[in-house]
Simulated assay, not measured.
Amino acid sequence: MSERWRAIGVLAVALFAVNVVARLVTRFGFDGDDTTAADRVSLGMFVVIGLVLAAVAFVWGRRRPVAAWGADLAAAVGIALLLTVLVGPLLVGQNPFGGGAGTFFAQIWLYLAATGVGVLLGYLLLTALGLDYRSQSLKRYAELRATKPRRVVRR
């Protein structure tokens, strides 16, 4: 059980670290008034988060059924989302609710959209290649049934 929570924690911290790096690049790399650069860095952050989750879904989907790794992924994304929205702005000296309710909820929806697309792409690629847990189980079952010796009939 501790291995499961360790994997969830490591993934949540990794997703949060991507956000922190993006916030620090935006704060120290560009002027405070340059919203175009901040938007590009945010877009890059969402792409990186989506790619990380696509890779994790691909790897975890090979080893375990969807119900097992899906819950772990949802927990990691939820923890990372809370850290990103509530703690991330504090690290760069901003108020999490400083931009208003619209900005606060827009961050949540964009984060959930990026993570959802990433997980979906990773799992769809895994399924299309036939490497997911279910496809491999069905393949093993078919091979087992095909190699079973014929039953001898007495006459």
Rank of each mutant, 00 (worst) to 15 (best):
S2I: 12
S2Y: 14
S2A: 08
R4Y: 13
W5I: 09
R6P: 14
R6S: 12
A7S: 12
G9W: 04
V10N: 14
L11V: 03
V13P: 07
V13W: 05
A14S: 09
A17C: 06
V18M: 04
V18N: 13
N19I: 13
V20E: 01
V20D: 00
R23W: 05
R23N: 08
L24P: 07
V25I: 06
T26F: 06
F28S: 09
G29F: 02
D33K: 15
D33G: 10
T35P: 00
T35I: 04
T36K: 15
A38R: 05
D39Y: 09
R40F: 13
R40C: 14
V41Y: 00
V41H: 00
V41N: 00
L43C: 11
L43F: 13
G44H: 08
M45T: 10
F46G: 04
G50W: 05
L51F: 08
V52C: 01
A54P: 01
A54S: 09
A55E: 03
A55C: 10
F58I: 08
F58S: 00
F58W: 12
V59F: 10
W60I: 03
G61I: 01
R62C: 02
R63G: 13
A68K: 05
G70L: 04
A71L: 14
A75G: 12
G78L: 09
G78F: 01
G78C: 03
I79Q: 10
I79T: 14
L81C: 07
L81F: 02
L82V: 04
L83R: 05
T84L: 01
T84I: 00
T84S: 08
V85L: 07
V85F: 06
L86Y: 13
L90G: 09
L91M: 07
V92P: 01
G93N: 07
G100K: 09
G100V: 01
A101T: 12
A101I: 08
A101K: 08
G102D: 15
G102P: 10
A106E: 08
A106T: 06
Q107V: 05
I108S: 06
L110N: 11
Y111G: 01
L112G: 05
A113F: 04
A114E: 05
T115M: 04
G116I: 03
V117M: 13
V119Q: 02
L124M: 06
L126Q: 01
T127R: 15
T127Q: 06
T127C: 07
A128I: 00
A128R: 12
L129E: 04
D132F: 11
D132Y: 05
Y133M: 02
Y133A: 11
Y133D: 05
Y133C: 02
Y133E: 01
S135V: 06
S135R: 10
S137L: 14
R140F: 10
Y141R: 11
Y141M: 13
E143G: 07
L144G: 06
R145T: 08
R145F: 13
K148R: 14
R150V: 13
R151Q: 11
V153S: 14
V153R: 08
R155D: 14
R155G: 15
R155C: 14
